[in-house]
Amino acid sequence: METLIIILVGVLTAVAIYLVLSRNLIRVILGTAIFSHAVHLLILTMGGLKNGTVPLLGEDATIFVDALPQALILTAIVISFAVTAFVLVLAYRAYQELGTDDLEEMRGADDE
């Protein structure tokens, strides 16, 4: 299971990198969103998968899955949402002001 998920993480990362390297601003933003998906899966996998029950102490169990990665990911999810929202608005405002969403054209003049 872990191996399969890690390979999936690799695929997601490759797609994300390709999108981020693009000239198109929306693709870059999409790329960062996919990046965070990949990282969340990776962190969760590193804690081990399915080797215990849900980390709620009320359950009648003695072995729980690792709760720390879950807490970290929860934080990461919310922050990646905040960042995505911010970058999206940045892109849309940049388009309004500059009239382009092409990074090649947004690039400043050489003498700056």
Binding site: I6, G10, T13, I17, Y18, L42
Partner: peptide, 20 residues
């Protein structure tokens, strides 16, 4: 870009597998 993307994904996979 394709080369960077594929090698990047591969690196993540290999590191992940090794750590695991």
């Amino acid at each position: 870009n394709t080369i960077i993307a594929i090698t990047g994904g591969l690196t993540i996979t290999l590191i992940g597998l090794s750590v695991n």
